[in-house]
């Protein structure tokens, strides 16, 4: 799935990594627990989360996440945007709940990791 499709489906807006070409994203993982994200072996995934802090960005960098979708209307702080821009990570903000964002993306063909 292309990033613009993810944006359209979740009514999202892009807040960091505007110039990044993340290519095709085929899998997603939803979690507020960064420890769980760090147990994944998958690269190039969409991380859907409601955790709005810099640790989300750092974890995404370490775990080779392609893009982050911040759900339930959580706002990205300037520090998060700054860090994401430096490492070249795309951050999207969606007003949808974690369940709704995950559900709509799953229904349109994004695969779960497990």
């Amino acid at each position: 799935m292309r990033l613009n499709e993810i944006i359209q489906l979740t009514n999202a807006r892009i807040v960091a990594g505007h110039n990044m070409d993340v290519g095709e994203i085929s899998v997603a993982y939803s979690s507020d627990l960064m420890s769980d994200v760090l147990t994944l072996d998958t690269d190039q995934l969409l991380l859907i989360s409601g955790l709005a802090n810099v640790q989300l960005i750092r974890t995404a960098e370490i775990a080779d996440v392609a893009a982050v979708l911040l759900a339930r209307g959580k706002k990205t702080s300037p520090e998060m945007i700054d860090m994401a821009d430096k490492i070249g990570l795309v951050i999207l903000e969606s007003p949808f709940s974690l369940f709704r964002a995950s559900g709509v993306l799953f229904a349109h063909g994004l695969y779960p990791i497990y």
Binding site: S35, D36, Q55
Partner: peptide, 16 residues
């Protein structure tokens, strides 16, 4: 835990 850690997964994940 509010940072998204502290679930008791760190050391086992290092080991892995």
């Amino acid at each position: 835990r509010e940072m998204g850690f502290g679930a008791g997964l760190g050391l086992p994940n290092i080991q892995k």
